[in-house]
C-alpha cells in the first residue's frame, strides 16, 4: 500500500486542479469497478455493483468519499524583480511557509519561498509572525519577463515534498505531503478492491479544502442511502504541558468522528463501526475534538438528508508541507470499513 500512497502523495492536486490525482486513482481502480464518470467539478465518481446476494434493501446505495485536493498556493502576480506573488488555496498557517520549496504550474517549475535573513530583522520583530504580504516565490528569474516565460498567472503551486518510509516495522511511519486527504484516497482505492452486497458509489471529490464543494454536487447526483467519508485528520499527540485532548494519536487505529464543525455523525453508523472494531479486534479511537470539517458535512445535507460518518487516518502536521502517518493505521482503517460494510449487509438497525 505504500507504493500507492507514494504515488498519491507525490501527485500534485491543489483544490480546483485535481487532474493528476484523478489519473493516479483511475489507473488504480479501473479494473475493480463497473463504470466511472467525471462531473462538472472534476469529481471522479466510480460505480461498483453489488457482487454478492443477500444485501438488505436499505441501505443499498452506499457513497464512499475521499477528497483528491490538497491545500496549496496560486500565482497571483509578478514582481519587477522576477519573484512571484501568491495567494493561499485552502487553510495554511503562514508560519509554515517560510523557507520551503514549491513546484509551480503544469510544468512543475521549481521555486523557493525565502525570507529576510535573521541578521537584518530587528530583535522586536523576530517575535512576530511573518508578514504574509511580504512573502514571494523565487524561481530564479531576474525580471518579470523572465518569470512570465516560465509561469502563468493563476498557476497552481504545491509543496515539493517527497514521500518516504521512515520505519519499516512497528507503526511503519511514512512522511509526505497531502496526507489530508490522499490517505483517505488510498483507503478508498483499497476498499474498491473488495466485494460487497451493496452498491458502492465511490466519489473522489474535488475542492474540499475550499468549502466541501465537490462533495456537495457528487452527493446530489448519487443520492445515496448512507455515506462514509475518509480523511487524513488532525493528530496532535506531540508532548504537551497540559493533559488535554490530542484529537487523535498516531498508531492507535482509525479515528471515528462523532461530531466536527461540519456535521454530527449518524449514531447508527458510529455504533456499526465501534461494534465491528470490537468484534474484529481492530484498534480504533474517536476523533476527540469538535474541529475541522469534512465532506460528510456537505453530503449529510444533500436532498432529504443522508446518514453519514467520517473515518480518518491520524496524520500529524496536516495543512503543512510535510505530514506523517502510520501505515498500520491506514490498513486498520481499510479493514474496519470493509468489515463494517459487510456487517451492514443485514441493515442498519435503529
Amino acid at each position: 500500500m505504500d507504493a500507492l500512497l507514494k504515488k498519491l502523495s507525490e501527485a500534485r492536486g491543489v483544490s480546483g486542479n485535481e487532474e493528476a490525482v484523478r489519473q493516479v486513482i483511475l489507473e488504480a481502480v479501473r479494473e475493480h469497478i463497473d463504470g466511472y464518470r467525471v462531473d462538472a467539478l472534476g469529481n471522479l465518481i466510480c460505480y461498483k455493483k453489488a457482487r454478492r446476494q443477500g444485501g438488505a434493501s436499505w441501505p443499498r446505495k452506499v457513497m464512499l468519499a475521499a477528497h483528491m485536493d490538497e491545500v496549496g498556493l496560486m500565482v497571483t502576480g509578478f514582481n519587477n524583480d522576477g519573484t512571484l506573488r501568491f495567494g493561499k488555496v485552502g487553510g495554511i498557517d503562514d508560519r509554515v511557509l517560510l523557507s520551503k520549496q514549491v513546484l509551480i504550474g503544469p510544468d512543475a517549475v521549481p521555486g523557493v519561498i525565502g525570507y529576510r535573513p535573521i541578521h537584518l530583522i530587528p530583535r522586536a520583530e523576530r517575535n512576530r509572525p511573518p508578514d504574509f504580504s511580504k512573502l514571494a516565490i523565487d524561481i530564479g528569474a531576474s525580471n518579470q519577463a523572465g518569470a512570465e516565460k516560465l509561469v502563468k498567472l493563476g498557476d497552481y503551486v504545491s509543496f515539493r515534498t517527497s514521500f518516504e518510509v521512515l520505519a519499516e516495522d512497528g507503526l511503519r511511519t511514512v512522511k509526505g505531503k497531502a496526507f489530508d486527504d490522499r490517505a483517505g484516497c488510498a483507503v478508498l482505492v483499497e476498499l474498491l478492491k473488495g466485494e460487497y452486497a451493496v452498491d458502492l458509489y465511490a466519489a473522489f471529490t474535488t475542492q474540499e479544502e475550499v468549502g466541501l464543494r465537490g462533495a456537495k454536487v457528487a452527493a446530489y447526483a448519487i443520492a445515496p442511502d448512507v455515506a462514509f467519508a475518509f480523511e487524513g485528520t488532525i493528530c496532535d499527540d506531540l508532548p504537551s504541558k497540559k493533559d488535554v485532548s490530542p484529537v487523535t494519536e498516531l498508531g492507535k487505529g482509525p479515528a471515528i468522528t462523532f461530531m466536527d464543525r461540519s456535521f454530527v455523525a449518524d449514531r447508527r453508523l458510529v455504533d456499526l463501526l465501534v461494534r465491528t472494531a470490537e468484534k474484529e479486534g481492530i484498534p480504533y479511537q474517536f476523533k476527540r475534538a469538535v474541529a475541522g470539517g469534512t465532506d460528510s458535512g456537505a453530503i449529510h445535507l444533500s436532498r432529504e438528508g443522508v446518514p453519514a460518518v467520517t473515518v480518518s487516518v491520524p496524520s500529524r502536521y496536516i495543512h503543512a508541507p510535510v505530514s506523517m502517518l502510520s501505515l498500520l493505521d491506514l490498513e486498520h482503517t481499510v479493514q474496519l470499513v470493509q468489515k463494517s460494510l459487510h456487517n451492514m449487509e443485514g441493515g442498519l438497525g435503529s
Binding site: 483544490s15 462531473d39 462538472a40 467539478l41 469529481n43 498556493l73 496560486m74 500565482v75 497571483t76 502576480g77 495567494g87 493561499k88 488555496v89 485552502g90 498567472l153 493563476g154 475550499v210 468549502g211 464543494r213 456537495k216 454536487v217 457528487a218 446530489y220 447526483a221
Partner: peptide
Amino acid sequence: QLEIIPGASGTDAWAIQVTREGIP
C-alpha cells in the same frame, strides 16, 4: 485581463457552480 481568485469568489458564480450536480 485576468483576475486570479484562489478561493471563494464571493459572487453569484460561487453559488451557481455547486448547484444540483454541478454547473461549469
